[in-house]
Write a protein that binds this DNA or RNA. Structure first.
Lengths: 197, 197
DNA sequence: CACACATGTAAATGTTTGTTTACTTAGTCG
DNA sequence: CGACTAAGTAAACAAACATTTACATGTGTG
């Protein structure tokens, strides 16, 4: 507290935590866009502007970095479906699918969940995350959490994933260009049809 | 009885067309399951039990083999949505998603469409195929092919893709274990909600 | 200030990759 | 039969890969 510090990104030239976060950030983008196998550690290091060896220093391996990115996606998704109500599902889906607020975009986290490194541990993680999400969607329906309700909740989830995929990865027109207003109508129809009050 | 009968593979010892088809078959499985980058040409050659060089002989390159697989998927999908009627969509979706008749499984062709080699030409192909499919679904709705109808048809397509993804790639319970009968109800609700008569 | 350690880098490691080359073998036909 | 060609193989190729090693340097602390 003796000397004044810049509060926002003091841009210290050497900062482990900051570099770690930077690697996470750029790796996430690559993994989402290109997948695990098609992304090289040199791609990531170059994007971050740091040396390749730092990936192994901070994340042990490429695989470790990938799992860290998956963890980020998991918390992001959980934050968005936690304590959600049935009425909020449609609006939040349309909003989060359509609008990207730069950081922590829910659609990106959904796409991250579709990526795999091939490691079975990663596949188990992905299944657990998605299962938790579908249970929360089923709970929002306010009905007994039987298999039928869970199945219908997972079809809602499948729709969200499918739309996000057609939009971000395939860029299929016209759904890729649809905005929040265009989506909220059809999505309301789907959710009401699958999880009626 | 010392007569040994090797009825197993009546495959002629040397047959270019047959070997080409075999490579296509095993490559398709690998590309769908592991993706383009994670699949090596040696994996494919070993699965087929032939030499690696034959891939380049028959398909010019790994990329060429991938595009051939994509072409297979395209015809398979087109065959299944051609001249489809609104009433058939739900039944066919439930049937094709749930039951796998070994060869030419529509769900596998859908998953193939989600794979990319990174080549832009491939991405253009994928977009064209999916756009044709959504136009045929919109036509089945029997309504003027306006943007709104096309958008809703693409959401139907997105649902099919999402369900297939959760089932085959992620193996998420319980949707992964749902049979035709379990799916036809919810799917009817979705299609009726999106493309009403 | 000077030392020590955390932070970062350059270069080399041994595999694995897709592709090409040179060669062998099976099938066909005069 | 005997050779000619199509079909298939083994080995070699350079490039790209993830990871490790040895070294350099910035930064906080005594």
């Amino acid at each position: 507290m003796s000397s004044e510090q810049v509060v926002q990104t003091p841009r210290r030239r050497r900062n482990a935590a900051e570099t770690r976060q930077l690697l996470l950030h750029v790796a996430r983008i690559r993994f989402i866009r290109d997948g695990y196998a098609a992304t090289t550690v040199r791609d990531i290091a170059d994007d971050a502007g740091v040396n390749v060896a730092l990936i192994n220093r901070y994340f042990t391996s490429k695989e470790g970095l990938f799992e860290a990115c998956l963890g980020m996606a998991a918390s992001d998704i959980n934050r968005n479906v936690d304590n959600i109500t049935l009425d909020q599902i449609t609006a939040r889906m349309a909003n989060k699918i359509a609008t990207g607020t730069d950081e922590g975009r829910l659609q990106d986290s959904l796409m991250m969940l579709l990526r795999t490194s091939g490691e079975e541990r990663v596949n188990v993680m992905r299944r657990e995350i998605l299962h938790a999400v579908s249970e929360k969607l089923a709970a929002a329906a306010g009905r007994p959490a039987d298999e039928e309700t869970l199945l219908r909740a997972q079809i809602v989830l499948a729709t969200a994933i499918g739309i996000t995929l057609l939009r971000t990865s395939l860029r299929l027109a016209p759904i890729a260009a649809a905005d929040e207003l265009d989506l909220v109508g059809p999505l309301t129809d789907v959710v009401n049809a699958l999880l009626p009050h």
